[in-house]
Simulated scan of single mutants.
Amino acid sequence: MSILSSASVVVRDLLVPDALPLLRVVGGDEGLDSAVTSTYATELPRPGGYVPRGALVFTTGLVLTDDAAVRRFTRDCIDAGASAIGFGTEIAWPHVPEGLRVDAGSAGIVVLEIPPTLAFARIDDYFDGLRITRQLVAERRLAVGRLLDAVRKGWANTSVLAPELHRVIRPGQDVLVVCLDADARPEVVLGGDYPVGLLDGVLTAIVPNPPGGEIRRALPDPHGVGGPVPIGYVASAMDEALAAFRLSERRGLPSSGRDTATLAALIGRLRADQSAPFHHHVYLPLARHDHRHGTFLVATLRAFHAADGSLGLAAEALHVHPNTVRNRLEKAESITGRSLRDVAGRAALAIALSTADGTT
C-alpha cells in the first residue's frame, strides 16, 4: 500500500456539516467513496482538456446558457474522469441543472450543490488540509511499521517503541495487537492515539489490555487479535495477530490467536516452499496412481480426512463397504510410505490435500 493511497480523500470526507455547511449531494451517491485527487474551478464551456483525473470540479455555470451546453460540459467532466462536480447555485442557475445532475449521476460522478454562502475556496482549503493530514498520518504509519517490523524480526527490542507506547500503555500493563485491513480507519474504530503501523500491508495497532472503553467492540471485518502479552513479548503477539488476520480474511469472521491454534490454521500459514514436499511426495504419487489405474485413492483419503479418521463415516460418504476404504488406505500407505494410523501421517495427509486445493 502506497503513501498516496493511504492518504487519499474521498468525496464522502467532504460532507462535514460543521466545516462545510449546506454542502449537499444531489446526484451520483454511488460515487461517494471515489478518491478526490485535486480541485479545479472553471467557467469554460468545454473544460475537458484541463480537468485532472479524479478532480472535484467547481463551476457556477455562467457560460452554460442552455441544456445542450450543460450536457456538453458534463460530458467533458465525465470523459476526463472527474470524481465530483460542485455546482455553485444562485449565481447563474437557481438550482443544479437537471441535465448535469442526471448525466453525471448516471456516470457515477457525485454532484454537489454549493450554496452562495459557501465559497469554493473554503472547500478547497478544507480538502487541502484533510489531504495533508492524511499524508502525515500515512507517513507516520510507515515509520511505526518499520519499528514494529524490527521488533518482530528481532532486530530491535521493544525499547524502540517506548516513544509510541508511553502515551497509552501503563508500565507493567499487558497489551493486545490488533490487525485491520489497510483501508480501515483505526482512529475511528479504535479511538485513542494508539501506535499504528503498516506491517506486511496490514494496519497493526498496539492497544492496552484490557482495552479502554473508547475502543469499539465491533471492529470491522476482517480483523485479527493477538495477545494479551507483556510488552516484552509483543513480537509474538504481532505474529499471532497477523496470522489471525489472514485467517479472518479466508473465513470472513473475526479471529484471535486462539483461532489460529488449529491444524487447518497452521496449514494456512505454510509458505509454498514449506508445503511443496508434501505435494510432491504425498499427493502427486497418489494422484498419478489414480490417473494411471482408474483408482480413487485421493477421493478416499479426502473422505477419510473429512470423517476425522472414521472408516465407517468415510465409507458412507463414498457409498462403498468399509473394507473397500480400508484396502484403499492400505494402498495409499504403501505408495506414500506414510501411516494413516498415527497423528503425523494424518497431518501429512491434510497438508498434501491442501496443496492440491490451493489452500496453502
Rank of each mutant, 00 (worst) to 15 (best):
A138P: 06
G86F: 01
L148W: 08
V177C: 13
G145A: 00
A104R: 05
R167E: 14
I91D: 00
R122G: 08
I78W: 04
A150F: 12
I169E: 10
W155V: 10
L198S: 06
P116Q: 10
L64V: 00
V63G: 02
L100K: 00
R72C: 12
G154A: 06
A121V: 13
R134I: 11
T158Q: 15
G108C: 10
D181C: 07
F73V: 02
V196I: 14
T117D: 09
L148V: 04
L62K: 09
T89V: 15
R146H: 13
V111W: 00
D103F: 06
R141C: 01
I78F: 08
F127G: 05
P163F: 14
R72D: 15
W93A: 00
A68H: 10
A182L: 09
L148E: 08
C77S: 07
L176I: 03
D149C: 09
A121Y: 10
R131S: 13
V175L: 04
R146M: 15
G88V: 03
A150P: 14
V188E: 13
T65N: 10
D124M: 09
A184F: 07
L161P: 03
R122E: 15
T60A: 12
G81V: 10
P186N: 03
G172H: 02
L190A: 12
G81A: 13
V178Y: 01
G108A: 11
D76K: 01
P186D: 06
V175S: 01
A82Q: 02
R167L: 15
A156E: 13
C179Y: 07
A82P: 06
I91R: 11
G108H: 08
L112D: 05
A138H: 05
V189S: 15
A182D: 14
T65M: 09
L62N: 08
S106H: 13
V144K: 01
I132V: 15
S159E: 15
S83W: 05
P171C: 02
R146D: 14
D181I: 12
E187Q: 14
L180Y: 01
P97A: 09
N157Y: 06
A92Y: 04
A162D: 00
D181K: 12
V110L: 11
G81L: 13
A121F: 07
D125T: 13
S83N: 04
P171I: 08
V96F: 06
T117L: 11
V111K: 01
V111E: 00
E187V: 08
R101H: 04
V178F: 03
A182Y: 11
N157A: 06
D193M: 04
D124F: 04
T158R: 14
G154K: 13
A143Q: 11
E113W: 02
P115Q: 04
P115E: 02
A143F: 12
L147Q: 15
V151Y: 15
P115I: 01
V137P: 09
G192W: 03
T158L: 10
E90H: 12
E113A: 04
D193S: 10
S106L: 12
R170A: 14
V202A: 10
L161S: 05
L100V: 03
L100F: 00
H95Y: 10
D103K: 09
N157W: 13
V63S: 05
A82K: 00
G105I: 04
L147W: 13
I132F: 07
V70G: 05
A143E: 11
W155D: 14
V189C: 14
D200P: 02
